[in-house]
């Protein structure tokens, strides 16, 4: 009972501290606001966007290459201009952000589940299993994530039959990015589990004869969530970046559902002829989104790491 109250009290004070620090950090507030706007924009894209860029009927080729509305040639209907097909760029960006965030978030969650389970088990059981997992992690860590993602993507393209491939592209992309990001989660989870598993509460669980699975998930996992949360935020930015890079390279999302990377790739074809807005606005959206998530990640890390305060 007493420990319960203590735990609650501790948790409440940490939450307050988090809030306190957040309210005194202007940069983090701006970053959180931008991230919030991106997420809302992405979630409600079908409601906010003036047109549906996936619907061929909703746009006309006659409207193509219209510059932003504030320039001489612009039309008020298309706030930041149109692309080569006559699609409203704002709508494309909203839908593209949505796709980028969906893929990035699911890839990050996939990596988190895979990496955390492997890391937990490796840290808890130790021995051979631990050695094998960590060897694999070491080898993969020496390869940059983008290379791993490209390879997994390439292999999947070879294995899957062509007809199915188009439909599965997004799943393939998510798995490819997830597989290239699990290592960080695994290493952090393992290191924290190593520390936790010798503490008294874990020993108590073991003496009570609880199943290892229960000990790991119910007792240890909540205690190692902090550092995992930091990795999660940082890796969300990395996942969005990887998705946009792969789509930019033309091996990411399907061409009929453009993400931000796809839009930028299309835009590069027109920078020489002066249609700068097609590439500039998607790029800016992407950069602002990644910067804000990175700043949030830094903020959370600083809050959770008392050494830095």
């Amino acid at each position: 009972m007493l420990s319960n109250i203590k735990a609650n009290w501790k948790r409440a004070s940490i939450e307050n501290e988090f809030l306190y620090l957040f309210l005194h950090n202007r940069v983090a507030q701006v970053a959180a606001f931008v991230a919030f706007v991106s997420i809302v924009g992405a979630l409600f894209a079908p409601l906010i966007a003036p047109t549906d860029p996936y619907d061929l009927k909703s746009f006309s080729i006659l409207d193509n290459f219209l510059p932003p509305a504030w320039t001489e040639m612009g039309e008020a209907k298309f706030l930041i201009g149109t692309d080569d097909q006559g699609r409203d760029l704002l709508s494309s960006i909203l839908y593209g952000t949505r796709l980028s965030l969906i893929v990035g978030l699911s890839a990050m969650i996939f990596a988190a589940i895979l990496g955390t389970s492997l890391g937990l088990a490796a840290g808890y059981f130790g021995g051979k299993f631990d050695a094998v997992v960590m060897r694999v992690a070491d080898v993969q860590l020496s390869l940059p994530a983008i290379l791993t993602a490209l390879l997994v993507d390439g292999i999947a393209r070879g294995i899957l039959p062509r007809e199915q491939h188009e439909d599965l592209l997004i799943v393939v992309l998510t798995v490819a990015i997830g597989l290239s990001l699990w290592v960080n989660f695994a290493r952090v989870a393992r290191a924290s589990t190593f520390v936790e598993r010798n503490k008294e509460y874990v020993q108590a669980d073991e003496i009570m004869g609880l199943h290892p699975l229960r000990i790991m998930l119910v007792s240890i996992l909540p205690n190692i969530m902090g550092p995992l949360l930091v990795i999660g935020t940082v890796d969300l930015a990395v996942a969005v970046l990887l998705e946009s890079t792969l789509s930019f390279l033309g091996v990411g999302v399907p061409p009929n559902q453009p993400s931000l990377g796809t839009l930028i790739r299309i835009g590069t074809e027109y920078i020489f002829s002066g249609e700068w807005w097609i590439v500039v606005f998607p790029s800016m959206t992407l950069v602002i989104m990644i910067v804000s998530v990175n700043i949030l990640g830094d903020f959370i890390r600083d809050v959770l790491n008392p050494r830095l305060r």
Partner: peptide
Amino acid sequence: GVSVPTFV
């Protein structure tokens, strides 16, 4: 420099 993707 850390946040802007290489291709951008």
